[in-house]
């Protein structure tokens, strides 16, 4: 694998596309070096070098157990690697607690949606806001200090809920939402934090086709407004449809990366992942992955 840690040569798009896994990007928002995470002898994540290009939609694909979710957990501070360093916009993230990672502009969602069930949908959204000073204990009782901000937060939350088509549920408890609505809420709530980079862990898992289409629209719209999107996905149609760049993981390592058309034609990728998914007879494992 390439060992590009210190020197950053001038790169062109053509050179980029010809390079091996771990390639340099023109304008990376996220750079990861030498990340290793083992679970009792198993190398769950073992990445020499990974860059995410600013303003793109990047898909991370790979069979079950490839380390995709572990990578998400490591990058967002929910799990600690054995070693490794990574930077968001040049600021070191390694060793930072999850809430600090989020405050620096990288906000994640979860594979199993985490709606705050006994809070209303609107309250769920408000928790995502980063500007509410009334969240400090010493100001909590001084209503006049945060009332104005609260109105602004609510207005923004209602606007986002409206855009995501769940505004009519704003005052209902989030636990009453359907599975698909919870996915929408979780994505909308992440946006309340005004992230530069959103990390979506299987945003379309368990969602019906109509709602999947709507979720993809939201991801495109988000991207169009300058937010970088990284997502884990099992559904290759979705990946081909929406992503600018695809990173393929297998057994904790990056197998290859590139534009979607190029990646699906890669022999290694077909062997490791796609081949079995496209083969109805032997499609056990990968087939299950599609159903997640």
């Amino acid at each position: 694998m390439s060992d590009v840690t210190t020197v950053r040569p001038e790169v062109t798009r053509a050179a980029l596309e010809a390079a091996p896994p771990g390639r340099l990007k023109d304008d990376p928002i996220l750079i990861t070096f030498g990340m290793l995470k083992t679970f009792g002898g198993i190398r769950a994540v073992d990445i020499d070098h990974l860059e995410i290009e600013r303003g793109t939609i990047t898909a991370i694909i790979g069979p079950n157990g490839a380390g995709k979710t572990t990578l998400f957990n490591l990058l967002t501070g929910f799990d600690r690697p054995d070693r490794g360093a990574w930077r968001l916009d040049g600021r070191r993230l390694d060793g930072r607690a999850p809430h600090r990672v989020a405050r620096l502009g990288m906000v994640r969602t979860f594979q199993l949606t985490k709606s705050l069930s006994r809070l209303t949908v609107l309250e769920n959204m408000a928790v995502g806001a980063q500007t509410q000073r009334g969240e400090r204990l010493e100001r909590a009782l001084l209503r006049w200090l945060w009332r104005g901000e609260e109105a602004r937060v609510e207005a923004r939350a209602r606007e986002l809920l409206d855009r995501f088509g769940i505004a009519h549920m704003a005052d209902e408890q989030a636990g009453t939402l359907s599975g698909g609505q919870r996915k929408l809420l979780e994505m909308a709530r992440a946006l309340m934090a005004e992230p530069h980079l959103v990390m979506l862990d299987e945003p379309t898992a368990g969602v019906n086709p109509a709602l999947t289409e709507s979720l993809l629209e939201h991801m495109r719209a988000l991207n169009a407004r300058g937010v970088t999107v990284v997502f884990v996905e099992h559904n290759m149609d979705v990946v081909m449809d929406i992503s600018d760049w695809v990173v393929v993981m297998a057994q904790g390592r990056i197998l290859t990366e590139g534009p979607p058309e190029q990646v699906v034609a890669n022999e290694e990728v077909i062997d490791a992942y796609l081949g079995r998914a496209r083969d109805p007879a032997g499609g056990g494992e990968a087939g299950e992955a599609n159903d997640v």
Partner: peptide, 28 residues
């Protein structure tokens, strides 16, 4: 008073799902 404030909202949110609240930038 505390529970009806934004502070209380974060506290109730932690009761529901601490990881979700951490992912939204709160020091739970």
């Amino acid at each position: 008073g505390l529970i009806r404030s934004p502070w209380g909202r974060v506290v109730r949110a932690i009761r529901e799902d601490e990881d979700a609240v951490r992912s939204l930038g709160k020091n739970t």
